[in-house]
Simulated scan of single mutants.
Amino acid sequence: MIIRDVKVVAESGITEEEIRAIVDEELQLWKRKGKELAEVQLTIEGEEIVVKAVERSPIKRVRRITGYLSTEDRFNSAKQAELSDRRAHI
């Protein structure tokens, strides 16, 4: 399930209300740290809910088009077209 753009994997027995509260709490915690939350895994151990949180990868793909290095989100429409026209040669 996806809640607030975060993938959630939870064992049965954890209510949706509990899941939403945990995700909201984790999002606030990670935001204070300056990091992005990608996934929350919830398991039950005895009477407790164990929370495992996974960070969204800060790695960005850098491309070289006509000699310039940049991320794809900064390409203008001509460079985006050039990228989509590329063919893999094996």
Rank of each mutant, 00 (worst) to 15 (best):
E18S: 13
T66V: 09
G13W: 02
I65V: 13
V62F: 12
Q41G: 04
K79A: 15
I59V: 03
N76K: 12
E25P: 02
E72L: 12
Q28A: 14
E16G: 14
T15R: 06
V62K: 12
I65L: 04
A10V: 03
F75K: 02
K35P: 01
D24S: 01
I2H: 08
V6D: 06
R20V: 11
R4F: 05
K79W: 13
V51G: 08
E47W: 06
E16N: 11
R20W: 00
S84H: 10
S70H: 12
T43H: 06
I3N: 07
E45D: 03
E36R: 13
R87N: 13
A53W: 05
S77H: 07
I3Q: 05
A21H: 05
L69A: 10
I19F: 10
G67T: 10
E82G: 05
W30Y: 13
L37P: 13
G13D: 06
E25I: 03
W30V: 05
K31H: 13
D85V: 03
R74K: 08
S84C: 02
L29M: 10
E25L: 11
D85P: 00
E17Q: 14
I14L: 10
E39R: 15
R4N: 15
I3F: 15
R20Q: 14
A53K: 11
E16S: 05
T66F: 08
G13L: 01
R56K: 15
L29R: 15
I90H: 06
P58Y: 07
I44S: 09
V50F: 03
E72D: 08
T15W: 07
L27Q: 12
D73M: 02
L69T: 11
E16I: 11
R61A: 15
L42H: 07
V8E: 08
W30N: 02
I59S: 01
E16F: 09
K31R: 15
P58V: 08
E36Q: 09
E36I: 02
E48W: 00
L83I: 06
R86N: 09
S84M: 14
L29W: 07
Q41S: 12
A21G: 04
P58Q: 15
I19Q: 07
G67K: 09
D24C: 00
E72S: 07
A88S: 01
R74N: 04
V40W: 13
E11Y: 04
A38P: 02
I90M: 01
R56F: 07
L83M: 12
E45C: 00
I44D: 10
E55S: 11
K7I: 09
E45M: 00
D73C: 05
D24A: 02
S84G: 03
K60S: 06
V40Y: 10
R32K: 12
R87F: 14
S77I: 08
E26W: 05
E26G: 05
E16C: 01
D5P: 01
V9P: 00
R4E: 15
L37R: 13
N76T: 09
E48Y: 01
